[in-house]
């Protein structure tokens, strides 16, 4: 009945037995215990469940865990380095790119893919890149700002400056 699957999740190898019908998002949340990836709409619309699968941003509610056998997965928990937030996480904080925060992990993972392909996107390119993620709180303005800020900081490598600015707030 069960299928053995092995995935490298945030740099750590995980071998588990899953039912074939287990969706990747449920595997990550319930078997591996990484609950930062959220289930939003359950209909492949909202993008709250977005993770990186071999570098691609994917909706983990629309991938079977068995399809991800052998893959490298990055979730929101794999973004920070120790206590230092990823520049996207820091920028969402600094620019108030969230209110309730439910959609935020998905936005950050999609934005990470967007910036890895296109480190200096225009506003239109950010909007198009994030079209598969829905936020019901913010009106998107500050999310756009946050991605723009993260892009600028990542290009100039100035994340240390932003971290010290935060600690002085």
């Amino acid at each position: 009945m069960g299928e053995r699957v092995t995935m490298t999740i945030n740099g750590m190898s995980h071998e588990d037995e899953v039912e074939p019908r287990t969706l990747l998002v449920h595997h990550l949340r319930e078997t591996v215990g990484l609950t930062g990836t959220h289930v939003g709409c359950d209909t492949s619309q909202c993008g709250a469940c977005t993770v990186l699968l071999d570098g691609d941003a994917v909706k983990s509610c629309t991938v079977l865990a068995v399809q991800a056998d052998g893959a490298a997965i990055t979730t929101i928990e794999g973004m920070a380095r120790g206590d230092e937030l990823h520049p996207l996480q820091q920028a969402f904080w600094d620019e108030h790119g969230l209110q309730c925060g439910y959609c935020t992990p998905g936005f950050i993972m999609t934005a990470a893919k967007l910036l890895s392909d296109n480190p200096n996107p225009t506003d239109d390119e950010i909007k198009i890149g994030l079209e598969g993620n829905l936020c019901r709180c913010t009106g998107y303005v500050n999310i756009l700002k946050a991605v723009r800020t993260a892009s600028r900081r990542m290009l100039s490598g100035s994340t240390a400056a932003s971290a010290s600015a935060r600690s002085s707030e």
């Binding site: 993008g47 994917v58 909706k59 999609t110 893919k113 890149g129 079209e131 598969g132």
Partner: peptide
């Protein structure tokens, strides 16, 4: 087609 995540799969 769809969005960035859908186009990846």
């Amino acid at each position: 087609v769809g969005d960035l995540q859908v186009r990846a799969r």
